[in-house]
Each structure stands twice: as C-alpha cells, then as structure tokens.
Nucleic acid binder design. Structure first.
Length: 536
RNA sequence: GGCCCCUUAGUCUAGUGGUCAGGACGCAUGGUUCUCAGCCAUGAAUCAGGGGUUCAACUCCCCUAGGGGCUACCA
C-alpha cells in the first residue's frame, strides 16, 4: 500500500496590508434606462471581485446627461441592484468617504480639475457653435478625412477668451490632445494596447451646460474615489486612450483596466428593448431567482474550468477571477438561463419554496383559495415545515392557516422538479386554488369526448364519494379496482380523470391531485365533466 | 469612411504545436411511468475561409470575410 502525504500547497505569499487591501472597484451606470442584463453582469463582476479580494464595491450614478437622466431610472437601477443582492459598500443610500456618489453633485470638482488643465494650458475654451461643428464634420467627411475638431479656438488669445467669456458666449472646454506620439495601456483581459495620439481629437471636457462629459467625469471620479480596477464593458475600450491621457496630465495614479466582452441579442446586435427581456426588473417581476440570474450572467464571459456551471453566490465569489474572463461577445440565451434558474430552485428549502410559491399565488389573486380543502389527516408525508421558517422569508399579504400551509407544502412536494420556474405556478397548480382555471380544449377532445367516458366519470365519482379515508393509497385502489371491474386499463380512467380535475393533459401524480383537491372538489369536478360532455 | 476589438456545434464555454477537440443548455432516440417533469442511457452537431511557418496547426504569422465598438456638447 502506498501512502501519500499530501501537503497543502502554500498559498501565494501575500504580505498583509499590501495592495490587495486597497482594491476598490465600481459600477457606474447612467440613469437613462432600466438596469439591463449587460449592466448587471458588469456590476456582478465588480461585486465578485471586490468580495473575493476583500476590497470595496462602489456604486456611482453617472447622470451628466441632463436630457436623458431620469429619477425613475435612478430608482429602478437601485431597486434592481438591491434585488440582485449586489450590495455596494459606498454609494447612494449608503454614503461613504468619497461622496457624493452622484455626478450631478460633484460639479465643483470637475470645474476645479478643468481649471487646472486650462491654467496649465492642457485645455482651452471653445466657442464654436454646434452648427459650425456639424458643417466642419460634414466637410471633413467629404474630403474623406477622419472627422476631428480642427482646433480653431485653441489659437484664441487670452484677451479674446476673456472678452467672450464676459459676454457670456456659450462655450465648452476642450482637452488639448498632443498630435505626436502614442499612448500605451494594459488591459487585464485584452493585453497591451498602443494608440496613436494623432487619431484622437480635442474632445470636450465640460459641456456648454456646465456639466462634464463622460470621458472627463469618469476619470476625475475614478481617481478621486481611488478606484483601483476599472471593470467595465468593452464599449469603453476605444475611450480608454483618451482617458489615459487625462490620468497622465492630471497626475492621477493609473488604475488597472479590465474590459468585458459585450452581451448581445440573439441577432448578434447590441442588446436593446427590441430583444424583449433585457431588464432585470422583467426577471424580477416574473419571479426568477436573483441567484439563478446572477449565476447565468456570471457564465456570460467567464468560466471556472469549463465544466462546473452551477454556482451559489458564495461559490461565485470564491471562484471568480478576472484572468478567466473571455474576450468574445456572448449572446444571451434564455433557455439556458431558465435551466440554471430551475436548478437553483431545486436547491431552495421546502419552507423557502412555500414562501416563494405563496408569493406568486398571492400576486395572481389565487389567495385566499376559492374553496377549502381538508386533506385527510394522516397524509403519508410528514413534512410540515416550521412555520417560523416560512414567516421569516417573507411577509405576505395573505396569511395562510397551518392547514393551508400543510396543503401547499404537500402540493410542492408532489410537484417535485416539475416546478421549474415560479412564473409557471399559476398555470401548473392554479386548479388547486380556483375553479376558474384554464381548460385545454385539446385535452378534452383527447380524453373526455367519448360516449363511454361520462358514465365512467360518474362511477368514479360515486366510488370516491363513498370513500371514508381519502388518502392517496385508498384513492388509487378505488380507481384501479373500478378499472378492473370495468375491464379497462387503469389509464382509461386516469387520463379522463386528470382532464376533468385539472383541465390539463399533464399534472403531477393523479392520485395526489385527487387527494389534494379533496373529496368534495374531486367528486364535484368529476360529475361536472360527466355532465358537460355527456351529450355529444 | 477611419481606427480598435472579437471569431471553437444553434447558444455559453474548456483546450494544447501531435487530444477520439472536453463540458453545459438546447435538440433527437430509447428505458423507467398514469401524463408530464425528472432520472438513466445513447445520438446528431464545432475549430469562419484562404494562404503561409512547421515533420506536424484548432493552436503561431498574414490576408479575407463576418460581427461588435469608438469616431457626440450619449454614456
């Protein structure tokens, strides 16, 4: 026998209090729409990286576009972030040492920084009108030249500038881009980049409404908030050279960059409203599990070992690594997302499921139930979960009695993994709570519209009526005995019975359905079906 | 138009200068069963194309194509 001694590899030596402890990342959405899956994925990676490294996760709202920013979007983003459980350490509602965390509240800072650039002759005022810029751009395109600002206002004398300023001529502040040389930077997922300065133009720093542009505000804020790693969408890769210039000339410390591949719609185009489900709120309203969504989103652009795909939030934090981020854009695949969601739902405790399902029933007005059912006492399952546990999870509008909870618990157990998505709850168990359930015409045609069926249904109803103990075992025996007497296969009774009781062609175990519907309701529906379909 | 990025089955991905190119969703087939789901088993399906370099390329280089991004007083 060989005995091997495994020595735990000694982890990479990390000096305490080294740079690892200064990791600060941020998610910086602009409140111009809902939080969509792409943004959520970016937020997630930032969150994961912060949690993994013990760093700080900051939320900053980039509302520099006065026209497009709305408070509704702002609120929606916050709500979605909270629902996802992407808890930020600093930001709106939380505060922090580097606030305010909304750009509209930091204008003094931007102006001070812009002034420094102007004083150092690294930026200048520009009085060109939008009209002039447009014609200029048009002309340049005509000449097949890259459309860049021509630098006209750069040559303005101090006196001219002062004069126009005092007259209140609308103006912007532009960055003075060097014409020679190039910028270099390194990206954690893409590698090294070098970019010719000549390709860049004198972009605007401060708009004529006094607000900073995105490219200026991000840099100022990231630097002032001491952001160490900028993890953001790939769409900003081309902006990075401009920003690197700003870091350099303002004398800021350069952060590390990690540009994430984009998430695209099924037609390979940028994700937008027309792709339907793109907002986090959409999934929330449909009762998807936040952890399931997060798990799926994590996989869009990142993988652990190519094999393991199901992760709890904790596991995600543990396994996440910027180095394993892929370069290629990913397409959002709803069916896989739903699969992952169902896998997460499988892992939810019974008490948790009861609470979740109750929530959906509640919302669909299926509570309180239209009829009471007393399931025969010894139900062969003794699984009544702790009431306290259920209460803990959520506070519901309708308080279910112990009896009702017990029935719901049994329904959920009987459903088993047929319950994949919570949004389907009304469709798969609605008939347990209301008489107003949808009846599948096709199912009726297949199993009820035959002359011999009504009498069979009535006979079955009679037998059930007589039954003293309405438990699963007895209910099954009665049906099978009846089939035997009638000299037909049990299925000949089972299928019509299912349709009569549920209006559907598929359901959980039919005998459990009978029990959970209760004697009265089962007999009633059986008779009703017999009556309804007797005259053809 | 200019510049930048990306390219392994329908989709998300693993992967190495020599592999039967691995996993997952989805799809198909069979088994279990009262239906469905599940579970088990099986199967179809991939290195965008073309040139190099090399004994050998999916892997390295170049070109082409396709997709995406930036080129705004949007972010």
């Amino acid at each position: 026998m060989i005995i091997r001694l495994y020595l735990k590899p000694v982890g990479k030596c990390r000096t305490m209090a080294d740079s690892e402890n200064h990791i600060r990342v941020r998610f910086a959405p602009s409140p111009t729409g809902h939080l969509h899956v792409g943004g959520a994925r970016t937020a997630l990676y930032n969150y994961l990286y912060a949690r993994k490294t013990g760093g700080k996760f900051i939320l900053r709202i980039e509302d520099t576009d006065a026209k497009r920013s709305t408070v509704e979007s702002y609120k929606g983003i916050i709500e979605s972030m909270e629902w996802l459980g992407l808890n930020w350490d600093e930001g709106p509602l939380r505060g922090g040492d580097f606030g305010p965390y909304t750009q509209s509240g930091r204008s003094v800072l931007y102006h001070n920084e812009a002034q420094k650039l102007i004083d150092g002759e690294k930026a200048y005022y520009c009085f060109c009108t939008p009209e002039r810029l447009e014609t200029m751009r048009f002309e340049m395109e005509e000449k097949k030249l890259p459309p860049k600002y021509d630098g006209r206002c750069e040559g303005l004398s101090e006196v001219e500038v002062a004069e126009r300023l005092s007259k209140g001529v609308p103006h912007v502040v532009r960055f003075k881009m060097p014409h020679e040389g190039s910028v270099f930077f390194r990206d954690i997922v893409r590698g090294e980049f070098s970019f010719e300065n000549g390709k860049l133009d004198d972009f605007v720093l401060i708009k004529s409404d006094g607000r900073p542009t995105y490219n200026f505000a991000v840099v100022v804020d990231d630097a002032h908030m001491k952001i160490s790693h900028i993890i953001r969408g790939d769409d900003h890769l081309s902006n990075t050279p401009r920003q690197v210039h700003l870091y350099r000339t303002l004398g800021y410390n350069m952060p590390k960059f990690a540009h994430l591949p984009m998430i695209l719609g099924s037609d390979h185009s940028r994700l937008s409203k027309r792709h339907g489900a793109t907002s986090i709120a959409y999934y929330r309203n449909r009762h998807y599990l936040a952890d399931g969504l997060l798990n799926y989103l994590a996989l869009l652009g990142w993988s652990f070992d190519g094999k393991k795909e199901l992760f709890t939030r904790k596991a995600l934090i543990e396994k996440f690594s910027l180095k394993k981020i892929s370069k290629n854009p990913a397409i959002f695949d709803n069916s896989k997302m739903e699969w992952i969601n169902s896998e997460h739902l499988k892992e939810v405790s019974l008490a948790g499921k009861i609470s979740l399902v109750q929530d959906v029933l509640d919302e669909e007005d299926l509570l309180p139930p239209e009829f009471d059912v007393d399931i025969t006492k010894p139900v062969d399952l003794k699984i009544v979960p702790d009431r306290e546990e259920i209460k803990e999870t959520k506070s519901h509008n309708y308080k279910m009695s112990d009896k009702e909870i017990e029935r719901l618990a049994t329904i959920i157990i009987v459903l088993g993994n047929r319950l994949k998505l919570l949004k389907d709850v009304p469709a798969i168990i609605g008939y347990f709570y209301t008489d107003d359930y949808k009846v599948d015409e096709e199912a009726v045609r297949m199993h009820l519209l035959r002359s011999e069926i009504p009498s069979r249904m009535n006979k079955l109803a009679d037998e059930y009526q007589k039954l003293r103990y309405f438990d699963r075992k007895s209910v099954e025996k009665v049906l099978r005995d009846l089939a035997f007497d009638l000299e037909i296969a049990a299925g000949e009774l089972i299928h019509p019975c299912r349709v009569a009781l549920t209006g559907k062609i598929v359901s959980p175990d039919i005998f459990w359905v009978v029990v959970l519907l209760g004697k009265d309701k089962s007999v009633e529906r059986l008779r009703k079906a017999a009556k309804l379909y007797s005259v053809t």
